[in-house]
């Protein structure tokens, strides 16, 4: 990976974001687009659930409806994530043949998370990679990441929490088994934010800048500021319909 296309922060709705990540992975896997890092946000706020999750077990759909929160099923496995204003999402796509990313799943999570861990440390947060797919600060999760390997590409996307919008947390159902086995009772006790850990307001701009810089250093590549191609945008538009469909959301 000599060059990395960087698509700067843009805000889209849930279906468009998931569709664009998939469209980019398709183009990257086919060798028609370069390896790509994309930074983005969600408007309206959204809950994304993992590919294998049962939507009604994870999401309070009535709450989401009342609060105007979108709900989307991801192409990637993993858990449910609330994407509100105090959050930065990234996606990274690279050919599955690229030696920059290990073939084994656990190793590749660590590889792709390592520039993010470095970026968080640059900001002053003592971040650590926590297998399988989390990044923690002081034992609390600040970032969740999820990966799929399709289309000849490795696609990993993840969330970085700057601030919690506590008013929207009712969108996620607390899972009694998981919480009791960890001996904790509330989302706020197992999740933290950068602003809380650093005792100051961390902006999306400074975090984005640190993440881009660390991808460049960590992978030893040049960054090219770019935009989605016509092919990617066109495919994303078609894929967004699937991500919006009731069949896709309720398939589990």
């Amino acid at each position: 990976m000599d060059r990395l296309r960087v698509i700067s922060y843009t805000v889209r709705d849930a279906a468009e974001n998931m569709a664009l990540d998939e469209a980019i992975a398709v183009a990257v896997g086919a060798g028609r687009s370069p390896p790509t890092l994309r930074l983005y946000g969600w408007d309206p706020p959204a809950v994304s659930i993992g590919y294998f999750q049962e939507v009604e077990a994870e999401v309070d759909l009535d709450f989401c409806e009342a609060e105007g929160i979108s709900v989307v099923r991801r192409l990637t496995g993993g858990g449910a994530v609330l994407h509100a204003s105090g959050e930065l999402t990234y996606s990274f796509a690279v050919s599955d043949m690229d030696p920059a990313v290990p073939q084994d799943i656990q190793g590749s999570y660590m590889r792709i998370c390592s520039p993010i861990v470095s970026a968080l440390r640059d900001l002053g947060a003592p971040a650590c990679f926590k297998p399988i797919n989390d990044i923690e600060v002081s034992g609390r999760k600040v970032s969740g990441n999820a990966q799929t390997r399709r289309f000849g590409a490795v696609l990993q996307h993840g969330t970085l929490l700057l601030d919690i919008d506590a008013g929207l947390l009712g969108a996620l159902r607390a899972n009694s088994v998981k919480l009791s086995e960890r001996g904790i009772t509330a989302h706020a006790q197992r999740v933290t934010t950068l602003s809380r850990e650093l005792g100051r307001r961390v902006t999306r701009g400074e975090l984005s800048w640190a993440v881009k810089r660390r991808f460049k250093e960590n992978f030893g590549c040049k960054l090219d500021a770019g935009q989605p191609t016509g092919e990617e945008l066109c495919r994303a538009q078609a894929l967004a319909d699937r991500y919006r469909s009731v069949e896709w959301l309720f398939r589990r």
Binding site: Y51, F52, E54
Partner: peptide, 15 residues
């Protein structure tokens, strides 16, 4: 039968 949760399977269709 349905197997659901926050795990990963590659390829996903394999599960």
């Amino acid at each position: 039968v349905s197997i659901t949760g926050d795990f990963f399977a590659h390829p996903e269709e394999g599960l």
